[in-house]
């Protein structure tokens, strides 16, 4: 266990330090997300009557696009001076490398979402203080981080890396988006609890399944 945990923490620590130094990713992802919200407001004409119907969709489309942006950048950064190659040269299990990168992206996205959620609540006028909403966000973001880390490791190695990540990511992540939207509208809406006992287990199954599969196939992605 320690053999996996130690390198994972070293890797996450490095990613946090790097982001703290430059702060370019967190700023660009936040600005990008706010832009999406503004565009949605006019595209969908979000009125108070329709907000509980529209808000979950807006939140999750924004989070999903922000996640692809963040994870793509995270691997591009590893490619710049060959950091990923250096990482692969160290005697650390490939599982730990995958989990370290995924955990870094997970924490980063949680930070971004924590910053965005109050803004969404204010702009779209709904209450963000809900335990189930926070739980939904954590579980769905874990799914994003696992699948996204795997596919960005593939996408950065191919031509047209910017397009390859969303093309691979969105079809696979669709159940997470459906579950997250439904669970969020149950949390925001007037009748909490309806449907949650269905969507939260679905998210849990998705997370558990890909927590097992992704590290296994990641070894195939990174070894040439």
């Amino acid at each position: 266990m320690m053999q996996i945990l130690r390198p994972v923490l070293i890797l996450v620590g490095k990613d946090i330090l790097l982001e703290w130094r430059s702060r370019d990713l967190v700023v660009s992802v936040l600005v990008f997300s706010l832009l999406i919200v503004v565009v949605f407001n006019f595209a969908l004409n979000v009125t108070p009557q329709r907000v509980t119907v529209l808000a979950p969709g807006i939140i999750w489309v924004t989070f999903a696009f922000a996640a692809t942006l963040a994870m793509n950048r995270s691997f591009v950064r590893e490619m710049e001076q060959g950091g990923l190659a250096g990482l692969l040269l160290s005697p650390v299990s490939r599982d730990a490398i995958f989990l370290g990168k995924a955990l870094g992206s997970f924490l980063f996205m949680l930070l971004v979402e924590a910053a965005l959620l109050p803004v969404f609540g204010a702009l779209l006028n709904f209450s963000v203080l809900s335990f189930t909403l926070v739980l939904t966000i954590a579980m769905a973001t874990l799914g994003f981080a696992l699948v996204g880390t795997l596919f960005s490791a593939i996408a950065v190695q191919t031509r047209s890396r910017e397009i390859m990540l969303p093309v691979l990511f969105f079809p696979v992540i669709l159940p997470v988006i459906i579950a997250a939207v439904e669970a969020s509208s149950a949390s925001i809406g007037s009748e909490p609890g309806v449907g949650l006992n269905r969507w939260l287990p679905l998210l849990a199954i998705f997370d558990a399944l890909f927590l097992v599969i992704c590290p296994w196939v990641f070894a195939v992605v990174v070894e040439e």
Binding site: K14, L18, R21, S22, R77, Q81, G82, G83, A85, G86
Partner: peptide, 14 residues
């Protein structure tokens, strides 16, 4: 093994 390649394997902001 210790490896020196064309890329430095280092991070610009560290």
């Amino acid at each position: 093994v210790g490896v020196v390649a064309h890329q430095t394997f280092l991070y610009d902001d560290l």
